[in-house]
Amino acid sequence: MKTRRSLACLLFALSVASAGASAQVVVVVGAKSAISPMSKEQLTAAFMGKIAGIEPVDLLEDNPVREHFYAKDIGKSASQIKSHWAKLSFTGKGAPPKEYPSSAEVKKALAENLYAIGYIEKAAVDASVKIVYEGR
């Protein structure tokens, strides 16, 4: 019984993970933000902390939407991103993005900070945010 339940849980977790990994990701800002739609090049610069006045926010590291976003839209591995922020954060040149556990939390952060930019599953888009980049 117990084994079967664990197996069911595992299958459920896997299906959620794969659904997350294959769902389309969009890059959003708060509905009142002045940040305008951007190119892929600008998007990469923004998430590497290179654009003054734009503060990227992240989902937690094990979140499949985050993995999907960096791999498909930014085109960099998790370790490349970590190396980049390690170079900045230990040298006083920038702090890595704040991390939030869910799309709902990301949307809340974007509503509170009009300089912030984040990524969520397209299905999670609502009136509190506007899309500045359509991811893959």
């Binding site: 970590k82 190396s83 390690a86 170079k87 230990f90 040298t91 006083g92 040149k93």
Partner: peptide, 17 residues
């Protein structure tokens, strides 16, 4: 602070970088 002499000067202690 660390002196920003070359590209990796300031992060010389941070091997991951």
């Amino acid at each position: 602070k660390r002196l920003p002499i070359l590209y990796y000067s300031e992060s010389q202690d941070v091997g991951v970088s």
